[in-house]
Write a protein that binds this DNA or RNA. Structure first.
Length: 472
DNA sequence: ATTACCCGTGCC
DNA sequence: GGCACGGGTAAT
């Protein structure tokens, strides 16, 4: 059994996620609810968020203690709430982006990019302890470097297990304090493998490094293989390089490493600022997820029938984008719209209206029409105005809400039965299309609920529309 | 006395 | 054996 040499032994930990089995749904829910609450005093914010959490499916019977744990732990670990110096709480930038764009891959990239030990997600006394030990460690950056190095040295795909990450990286001061070169860490891992050395794989021991590897997977930085190891995604070069090239740490801890003694008070002064820090300078251009790639991956992982479907979807989207003279796009909205246009063209063709199919167009942004696509009912030439709402995540999700701008809601109000929401959910397990006709009408007949917030937040149910087979 | 990460423990 | 409830415990 391998153990870290006594003098180098340390234990890094962070909050347990509480939502592992339901991570993406819980997160989207939390982010949306936090944004709905808006800026409030600490007390008001806490009590409103607590109510929201209690309303999440399955939470009705849980103890208040547990719900408060959700409230504080999920928000601090992931930085969903920011604090002002005059005692207010407000939705963080990450929460806003997640709630509006629903790009979970991007969200986890933001998280992984800033996450470090110590950090404001820990209690100040833990941070104090880690700073006194000299710990200064960004796990995602280090693991990515190590995996790349591993590929280079072994000349094949190198995978890292949770136990190896725990005992050779997280719990070793030579790494988390002394910034030991990844090659050296690799030597140790390979030596242990060669000698068949075992590790303590107890759940509570390896869970912290394991959590980080899981978050990296949700960020589409690594993939998990059935042999229990995580492998780097070599097709995400640009994103991965930005992690590796970054040398930033939470600046307010920096001066504390040089002091003879650091007081708890020193740390406490930095707590609020941590949440500002993790929410600033988010690289939205680089980190947003590449839909084509997620679909490509879906293609590799699903069964034969679905695979054929996704393959033809990919081909069609590419063709469509070539016709439009566009280079490969990363925009969620763009790909969502391409899929919706294809769907419409085929639907109309199936109704023997090729003439109308040819006239399906995307409206240029500058029109600000309040919808994305001009299409037709098909039986008649009545217009069908379509707003596409796309969600993307690694795993299939089950979330039933989206945001509409004032413009979009206004258009829905004006065009009534001619206005459609096409709700597309893209994940590595495929694509889902849910169609909601006349959202304002549905709202008036209580088939969906609406809350105003920079436009409106819509929560829908199976009764609000119909799940359609996506035509491609 | 209350709050909020910490983490033991029991459930699936 | 992974996961999360809710009590533990130190900070406020």
């Amino acid at each position: 059994m391998y153990t870290v040499p006594e003098q180098y032994s340390v234990r890094l930990h962070h909050c347990r996620p509480r939502f592992k089995n339901d991570r993406e749904d819980v997160l989207l829910y939390m982010a949306s609810e936090i944004c709905l609450i808006g800026k409030k005093t600490k007390k008001e914010f806490a009590s409103e968020l607590l109510i929201a959490i209690k309303n999440f499916r399955g939470n009705g019977t849980k103890a208040v203690k547990t719900l408060n744990n959700w409230r504080t732990e999920i928000t601090t670990l992931l930085g969903l709430v920011e604090f002002t110096n005059d005692g207010y709480c407000k939705p963080s930038r990450m929460a806003e982006l997640l709630s509006e764009k629903q790009d979970l891959i991007e969200f986890f990239r933001f998280f992984c990019f800033k996450f470090q030990y110590p950090g404001g997600h820990l209690k100040p006394d833990r941070t104090l302890y880690l700073i006194a030990k000299g710990v200064k460690f960004k796990p995602v950056k280090y693991i990515l470097k190590l995996l790349l190095e591993g590929n280079k040295i072994t000349k094949k795909n190198f995978g890292l297990s949770k136990a190896e990450a725990t005992h050779c990286i997280f719990n070793d001061l030579r790494v988390v304090r002394d910034q030991q070169a990844p090659t050296k860490t690799l030597d140790l891992i390979m030596k242990n493998r060669a000698q068949g050395v075992e590790y303590d794989c107890n759940g509570d021991v390896i869970r912290y490094a394991g959590d980080i590897l899981d978050y990296m997977e949700l960020a589409n930085l690594v993939s998990y293989k059935l042999n229990g190891r995580y492998y780097i995604k070599t097709n995400e070069v640009e994103v991965i390089n930005s992690f590796i090239d970054s040398n930033e740490y939470f600046p307010l801890y920096e001066p504390l490493y040089n002091l003879d003694t650091v007081s708890l008070e020193d740390i406490k002064h930095t707590q609020n600022e941590w949440f500002t820090y993790v929410n600033e300078n988010l690289n939205e251009t680089l980190f947003k997820s590449d839909i084509m790639q997620v679909l490509q991956e879906a293609n590799d992982s699903v069964d034969q029938a679905d695979s054929e479907f996704i393959e033809s979807l990919l081909i069609s989207i590419r063709k469509k984008q070539e016709i439009k003279g566009k280079v490969k796009t990363k925009e969620i909205g763009d790909v969502g719209e391409s899929i919706a246009i294809l769907h419409e063209q085929i639907r109309l063709t199936n109704l023997n209206r090729e003439d109308l199919a040819k006239k399906v167009v995307k409206l240029p942004e500058m029109f600000s029409a309040g919808y994305d696509i001009n299409s037709f009912e098909g039986i008649s030439e009545i217009k069908r105005l379509i707003e596409v709402k796309t969600t993307i995540s690694k795993n299939k999700i089950n979330i039933n809400r989206f945001h509409m701008t004032p413009n979009e809601w206004g258009a829905a109000e004006t065009f009534k039965d001619a206005y459609y929401i096409y709700r597309l959910m893209i994940s590595s397990s495929g694509v889902n299309l849910f169609v909601i006709k006349n959202p304002v009408g549905q709202y008036k007949t209580d088939n969906l609920s609406m809350t105003p917030r920079n436009g409106v937040d819509i929560t829908y149910s199976n009764d609000s529309g119909k799940l359609k087979e996506l035509l491609i």
